[in-house]
Write a protein that binds this DNA or RNA. Structure first.
Length: 344
RNA sequence: AGGGGCAUCGUCCAAUGGUCAGGACCCUGGUUUUUGGUACCAGUUAUGGGGGUUCGAAUCCCUCUGCCCCCG
């Protein structure tokens, strides 16, 4: 059981116990810039909770994996003019991966977290991640790149719960974290300031460059490509007075940020790399599915063509979507995640 | 050293002589959010200077300054 020390995971521990499971809890810890993540308080809450419940608790240092699978790629992506989705990578390569490793060493069958997702068994007998009953908290997007073998061992005790129910349950069970604040922002950048983190690690991504329109006209200067994302509007400081401008492309070689005027730049089609598929390629053929290019994004009707083992093409049926290279795109069949990948 | 035109938020524009000079973009802040962005909400900033007419001037008159255009 992954126990961060927050409300959700704390509630999951007591719930699993109540259901009669033999539970061991693990808090994944690391140090970022001299600051412990999660906080000392959260770790202490987790320890205290386990002590009071009689649950074994482990603090697992995941600093190495986090650096290699999340932080490193995060900085690298920005330096290449892309916009990474660190939480998706973290869930797959750090959180769930570490928990499974620990489960193996302890002889545990399954791993659980406090994610708001549901698990659904398909007509082919394969278990997949699906949207939580509480749609407003649904985190299936963040778990869309879990491998099938990971999902097979995954448990999602909060699948049917709402946040309010969890808070009430935590309160009733006298869990100290009941009133803890929601986490937000990148966990590894102090104060959530990812740009300060990047500036220190990749100063080259903060070299000034030109802001140009589609005809190559220079409209302004910028303070580094790491400050921009395709689709971004604010921060360009373009004062033509005739409508907003949006970032349409970022070129790391020339350090040029291209912008277009008027409406948000949307893509009708784009490719996914490092895609994780939970269906056979043939299954996708001609099938009407939905894609989501942001955690809070609306699912959009689309077709998927599998081009290779980890490569697919997405073709939107409607007006297109804001698709920033480097971001995660989740593919749904209704409520069920059938694929996930990185926007090319 | 002829003639004509224009000067309003940071930018681009609006305002029959009459409510706190309006909007868009930018910017700032907030909401939302286990990424970045988007979206939504809110907010700051202006009548080039000086005179005059009028109860009242962004608006009419004079002048200074600065731009633009046409003809020499």
């Amino acid at each position: 059981m992954g126990l961060s020390g927050g409300v959700d995971s704390s509630t999951v521990v007591s719930r699993l116990l109540a259901e009669g499971h033999d539970v061991a809890a693990a808090t994944l810890v690391m140090e970022r810039g001299g600051v412990p993540v999660p906080s000392e308080e959260a770790l202490e809450r987790a320890r205290a909770l386990c002590a009071s419940l009689g649950v074994e608790h482990y603090a697992v240092d995941v600093a190495d994996a986090f650096e290699r699978r999340v932080c490193g790629p995060f900085a690298e992506a920005y330096a290449r003019g892309r916009t990474p989705s660190p939480c998706v990578a973290c869930n797959r390569f750090v959180k769930v991966a570490s928990l499974i490793d620990l489960a193996d060493s302890l002889g545990c069958d399954r791993v659980a977290t406090g994610h708001y997702v549901r698990l659904e068994t398909g007509d082919d007998g394969v278990v997949r991640v699906a949207r939580a009953r509480d749609r407003s908290k649904d985190q299936s997007y963040y778990l869309c790149e879990l491998s099938p073998s990971q999902v097979a061992r995954f448990m999602a005790p909060l699948a049917q719960s709402t946040k309010d129910e969890v808070r009430a349950e935590a309160k009733a069970a006298q869990i100290p974290a009941a009133n803890a604040a929601e986490s937000m922002g990148v966990c590894f950048a102090p104060g959530g300031d990812y740009r300060a983190f990047l500036r220190e690690r990749r100063p080259d991504a903060f070299e000034p460059g030109d802001i140009i329109d589609e005809r190559g006209q220079v409209l302004g200067r910028h303070g580094g490509i790491a400050g921009f994302t395709v689709g971004q509007r604010r921060g360009l400081d373009i004062r033509t007075g005739d409508g907003p401008w949006f970032v349409s492309a970022i070129d790391p070689e020339s350090r040029q940020v291209s912008v277009g005027q008027g409406v948000r730049p949307t893509c009708k089609r784009f490719g996914l790399t490092r895609a994780v598929l939970t269906r056979e390629p043939a299954w996708f053929e001609g099938r009407q599915l939905q894609v989501q290019t942001h955690y809070r994004g609306r699912p959009l009707a689309a077709r998927i063509v599998v081009d290779g083992p980890e490569s697919v093409s997405v073709e939107l049926a409607g007006d297109g979507a804001l698709a920033a290279p480097g971001q995660t795109c989740a593919v749904y069949d209704g409520d069920v995640v059938v694929a996930g990948g990185t926007i090319a």
